[in-house]
């Protein structure tokens, strides 16, 4: 296991490197001049040239990249000009809010997706299976931002159960109940769509596993159906589901961009949308790197969890 883990961790390093290159290149390649964006359309060429020199934008690209990456590695993400505060402070605060949202959505997704998948497989061809299969398909087909707006219309405006927006920075002074209250709708909207994928995969994986000889062996031991399904069948079925959970986390982080915009959630997704508009390069680059790193690391974690669950994977 230790050898496998070490190998997988080493494999991640070039991926992270590539991510940083992409994040850097993206802002260089897209049209729009940051110095002009900062100074406005009436700035003189001299002013722009001066600002570019100050921001080191006049240096060759490889030099800019190496400098930027070197700073990142030492924890210096630079300063956001539009917010006039260190990028790292802004990222930390925003990312906490996003993690809270995505984490809650992940939890809901796992509970819903796994439960629905197991029940659908165990009750194959019966009404429970039909309900969950159709439900999963609908969930898959619905865009999360549309669902988010429907949620707002129904649960906030009509029923008045939950607030439409107005989430303050996470872990702020308003207390955990207030945070939870704000969290329910966006997290559910985000999770419902993602749980469709998990439910379908869990169902097919369980159906495959339930046919296996070792499930019959487990039954022949006199174990209850519940133990056979959970300890023997599900324990095997989850092995193929775990890596997809890793991928779905990417979907949750990405989907958070829309959901955060719809619900006015002070997360990193909404921050990125704003920062792209204002050409706040360092903020965008820092944000993209942070989200991408998180995604890569969570996938690494999923792979390691999978290897813990199935000893045969460590041999590959």
């Amino acid at each position: 296991m230790r050898v496998y883990a070490l190998r997988r961790i080493v494999q991640v390093i070039p991926v992270l490197f590539g991510v940083s290159l992409l994040a850097f290149g993206m802002m260089v390649l897209i049209p729009g001049d940051p110095a002009r964006a900062i100074l406005g359309s009436y700035a003189t060429p001299e002013n722009i040239a001066t600002l570019e020199r100050q921001l080191a934008l006049d240096r060759p690209l490889p030099v800019q990249y190496v400098t930027w990456l070197g700073n990142l590695l030492t924890g210096d993400f630079g300063r956001s000009y539009s917010l006039n505060r260190p990028v790292l402070d802004e990222l930390t605060e925003r990312f906490a809010a996003t993690l809270l949202l995505a984490g809650a959505a992940l939890l809901i997704m796992l509970v819903l997706g796994l439960t629905a998948g197991i029940i659908a497989a165990v009750k194959q061809h019966r009404w429970q299976d039909r309900v969950f299969t159709v439900g999963a398909l609908v969930g898959l087909s619905v865009p999360s931002f549309w669902l988010a707006m429907i949620f707002i219309v129904v649960f906030s405006l009509r029923l008045g159960w939950f607030p439409t927006s107005g989430m303050r920075p996470a872990f702020g002074p308003s207390g955990p109940m207030d945070v939870l209250h704000h969290l329910v709708l966006p997290a559910t909207a985000l999770a419902l769509v993602a749980s469709g994928v998990i439910a379908r995969l869990t169902r097919s994986s369980m159906l495959e596993v339930l046919r296996q000889d070792y499930v019959r062996t487990a039954t022949s031991k006199g174990l209850t159906r519940r133990v056979v399904i959970l300890r023997h069948a599900f324990r095997n079925a989850i092995v193929t589901v775990v890596p997809v959970v890793g991928v779905q986390v990417g979907f949750l982080l990405g989907g958070a961009v829309y959901i955060e915009t719809v619900f006015g959630w002070p997360g990193i997704g909404r921050m990125l949308v704003t920062a792209i508009g204002t050409r706040d390069i360092l903020l965008v680059q820092g944000g993209v790197v942070l989200v991408a790193f998180t995604y890569v690391l969570l996938n690494l974690a999923a792979d390691l969890v999978q290897a813990v669950l199935d000893p045969r994977i460590r041999l590959q």
């Binding site: 062996t217 006199g222 159906r225 324990r235 669950l309």
Partner: peptide, 28 residues
Amino acid sequence: SDATLREARGGRVACVFQDPQTTLNPVL
């Protein structure tokens, strides 16, 4: 009943199956 059947399974009557490659749970 299920309970009676489960008492018999693995208790008074036990099974050995054909292919030992597949009859043991691979992840336990």
